[in-house]
Nucleic acid binder design. Structure first.
Lengths: 378, 378
DNA sequence: CTGAAAGCGCTAACAA
DNA sequence: TTGTTAGCGCTTTCAG
């Protein structure tokens, strides 16, 4: 037989001869087409033969070359996932879910983080395009329109959070920020707070705006007058939280709020830290509420009351939306909007205002005096 | 011209005709071979012609199909990265570095997390193999040998941490745990601590063992006698840290250590939390040292003294090692070992033991009494 | 220095 | 139901 094996002295024991569909076909005594059909579970294959083919496949430990498959079928079976910042614990939790669900459906995933840098975003998109992703979930809570053109031009299905261009192939995960944030404000109001500050996310992020709006609206619902001096812009990082709290302390020596809501948990963690530095107690001197409910929120000191937004729901909806576009007959437009719920999780960083408001005099300075710890509430 | 456009009434403005190397060739009046050579910067191309080709490429916004490229060249330009747990903040920081450096060299990356589950690990490996990765960095701090066979059999270059089979194509990043941990122990000893506990990682992880060994050795170097009751097994999670601290408290009501070293920062964060619950002060009642120096270690309450292991160094060494195997002429064996340094970062979770040892009586129970906060040290 | 042509491993008509 | 065959878009000999 094999006149092919040219290399003579090569003592390559076995692993040498390449494992492709032809090898299987030969070994199973069928054509490569039959092997292909078997692998793809085309029902017209004779069960007997299919069994034989599978046996060979298992025995030889063969699996198809995805590159070749993608090339010929035009289906890469890859989804892209673009996040703002992989080092913000919110995102790894999202990524994990996305990966699990995508893999479950036979997709591979390409993750990339933009770090809020448009240049990186543009590279990201290019990379995804080159790898021929079948869809991209853009979980950056905001994107510059022009960058989209590349993707839109190539008709890649897209999923956004909160807001997205109204074009075919695009889905949007609508997060109900208002629900959770209202719960937060009401919780604070019920505790007796009337003076509530808000540390927002970066103003350019649509989702940050939505959270701020939800806050203002909720305040009104509780007939609390908003105080502009108590709305501070943060940037969704811990450092930003620290800086924002610093400004809040500096600007309000006279009349401090008794509670602060934060646009995300990382910000809240920064706030907690800054308050610790200032020798202020949480929640006695100041109640703190976060947003996201990342895993560590459970163990901050004190554990953080926060608004939960399910990473898993987000991930599942994203994959579902993408699949709907890719796998549908290319006609009927699939659902555009998916709703994501938010809910308040009460832990220990919120409490009644007590004597707080009266006690704060010189809230600046890092050298806060030693102070009493809050009692564990459990 | 174009007799090709068969579809008549299709008013598809422009995006319809497919953009491939042939389109470019036609537009630039050269053969596809020349286009290919131009793109790949083969020096034999006439500069004039090259310029013309590039002009067309830019104008038409063309880029090559990576699938096809990979198929014919046998080079996917993809590296795999397997981590234990993407939700442990250590790993996202690693992933970020790995991504940046790999992309810089033209590689795409496939990330997957095993969650310490051998079944997941095995799926991971399979997925990577199917996507024809050119190399895999296995950053799980431990792997079951049998799973490797799949990868080894296919001659995929591999990078491990700490330890790995001695086979060609395999590199190992040797982390110098001892250096940083010794610094930690010496720091504690210098502060006056003689009673130091250690909360380890999962016993099955090689790296966890190494850290424990480094601890024991360092203790001896300071002529401190180790106390077996003060070596507790954790699992590198916050929950594990909480549980471990709980056991440490329960088992040592009589004589508590005055300091605890933890096998990683997540554990330390759990410990901090448990101590807060117990109403114990850090560092006055107990000093705490972490390991990893993840980003949040800066803002824990109090900020964590910890041993830094550079994610960036790890990432860079991993990519370098993989590239060395892939891009070398397939002869000369590339370097096998890469050294990674560790260093102590002193923050505020460590201090002198003071009167601590005498004061602890009933350290169980969650309802610790209100207590004095540590003075901010800055 | 450039072009023609042979595949890379697979899927999907089209025949049989 | 199965086999034959024509490519998917590109790289890479091998001639010219």
């Amino acid at each position: 037989m094999a006149t092919k094996k040219a290399k003579p002295a090569a003592v390559e024991n076995k692993a040498t001869e390449r494992m492709d569909i032809r090898t299987i076909a030969r070994a199973a005594n069928v054509s490569i087409a039959t092997v292909s059909r078997t692998i793809n579970h085309i029902p017209t294959v004779n069960p007997e033969i299919a069994k034989r083919v599978w046996a060979v496949i298992d025995q030889l430990d063969y699996f198809p070359n995805t590159q070749a498959r993608a090339l010929v079928s035009g289906r890469s079976k890859i989804f892209g996932l673009i996040v703002s910042e992989i080092t913000n614990p919110f995102f790894p939790e999202l990524i994990q879910g996305f990966e699990d669900i995508a893999v479950e459906h036979g997709y591979e995933i390409l993750v990339s983080s933009t770090n809020y840098d448009p240049k990186r975003m543009s590279h990201c998109i290019r990379r995804m395009l080159e790898r021929k992703v079948e869809g991209v979930a853009i979980m950056t809570f905001g994107i510059e329109e022009p960058l989209l053109d590349q993707l839109a031009k190539r008709n890649v299905p897209l999923v956004f959070i909160d807001i997205g261009p109204k074009r075919p192939g695009i889905s949007v995960l609508k997060v109900d920020y208002h629900h959770g944030i209202r719960q937060g404000v009401q919780h604070l109001a019920a505790l007796g707070h009337r003076n509530i500050a808000f540390i927002s996310g970066p103003a350019i992020l649509h989702s940050a705006q939505s959270r701020l709006t939800a806050f203002s609206t909720s305040l009104k619902e509780c007939s609390i007058a908003p105080n502009p001096a108590w709305i501070i812009e943060g940037d969704h990082t811990m450092e930003g939280g620290i800086a924002a709290m610093e400004r809040l302390l500096a600007a309000n020596a006279k009349k401090m709020p008794t509670a602060v809501m934060c646009s995300n948990d990382m910000t809240a963690i920064g706030v907690l830290h800054r308050l610790y530095r200032a020798g202020l107690r949480v929640p006695d001197d100041l109640s703190v509420v976060g947003f996201d409910d990342i895993h560590i929120a459970e163990v901050t000191i004190p554990p953080l009351t926060t608004v939960q937004m399910s990473r898993f729901d987000l991930a599942r909806a994203a994959v579902t939306a993408l699949r709907a576009h890719v796998e549908n007959a290319d006609d009927r437009a699939p659902k555009r909007d998916y709703n994501i719920q938010t809910d308040l999780i009460v832990r220990e960083s919120t409490g009644s205002p007590r004597a707080a408001a009266t006690r704060l005099r010189e809230p600046r300075g890092k050298s806060g005096r030693p102070d009493i710890n809050p009692v564990a509430l459990t």
